[in-house]
């Protein structure tokens, strides 16, 4: 917020703002909350102390326990808000990770589900994770997203593995890329109508095909063996193509 009585329209706030959330034109100071990243630079440079911050709600965090006893938290953006990254960041800190929901449930694993692609919310979800599980499909779309996200994982120093979903459609380019990039393909899930029907009805793959249960246990064991043993694991799952 700008105190109009103190502001001299010097324009330093607008100059320092990396995101152009402020503009000083003529005698007016314009503030665009949707562009603000909340860095506070404008407060620091204002020689008159005319700028103050106020909370601007962009979404809502909620938490609960699934039917299977897992703690689940989600962030929901308000309609019309453009920036998802602050919500992802807040969600990573809230509620306390690894808090036991039900006695006897394994609470040393945190799974973060990222949107597809390689946008800022994806990067924020990945940041700080111990392992990155890339769920993709063997199509040019899957390959395109995979090629964008793998270098980011490398730059962040996060080990990664791939699950090829809907195997049997598309081509072999994703598998070839994984081999070339040294990415292990940890699991392949074939394209089957009964899977699609179950997921469309709100059921999980393992509910529809219990024979996959051991395969997922093995997948988790492989990931745990890759990261530091016995430590709590934050696993980011990012997808590509149509998941």
């Amino acid at each position: 917020m700008i105190d109009e009585t103190r502001c001299t329209r010097c324009g330093r706030c607008a100059e320092v703002c990396e995101y152009h959330a402020l503009a000083v034109v003529g005698l007016r100071v314009l503030v665009f909350p949707a562009l603000c990243h909340g860095c506070g630079s404008c407060l620091r440079v204002c020689p008159e102390g005319a700028i103050s911050e106020r909370q601007h709600g962009i979404g809502r965090l909620s938490t609960g326990v699934t039917a299977g006893g897992c703690r689940l938290s989600q962030g929901l953006m308000h309609v019309g808000e453009p920036m998802a990254t602050p919500i992802v960041r807040a969600l990573k800190r809230w509620p306390p990770a690894f808090a036991p929901a039900v006695p006897g449930i394994d609470c040393t694993l945190e799974i973060r589900d990222a949107p597809p692609g390689a946008s800022c919310p994806v990067v924020e979800t990945m940041r700080g994770a111990d392992y990155l599980l890339l769920v993709t499909e063997p199509t040019p779309f899957g390959l395109h997203d995979l090629r964008q996200v793998v270098p980011i994982a490398t730059e962040l120093g996060i080990p990664a593995g791939v699950v090829i979903n809907r195997e049997g459609i598309g081509d072999a380019a994703v598998a070839a890329y994984c081999e070339e990039a040294g990415l292990p393909v940890l699991m392949r899930i074939p394209m089957e109508r009964r899977f699609a029907e179950a997921i469309a009805a709100g059921r999980t793959l393992v509910e529809a095909a219990p024979e996959y249960g051991p395969a997922f246990r093995e997948l988790l064991a492989t990931i745990r063996a890759t990261v530091a043993p016995a430590a709590p694991v934050a696993l980011a799952a990012a997808g590509g193509g149509g998941r």
């Binding site: 152009h20 665009f32 562009l35």
Partner: peptide, 13 residues
């Protein structure tokens, strides 16, 4: 990176 419209507007002003 963002707010191109604001920056361009300030520029032409």
């Amino acid at each position: 990176a963002g707010g191109a419209g604001v920056e361009a507007a300030r520029f032409v002003v």
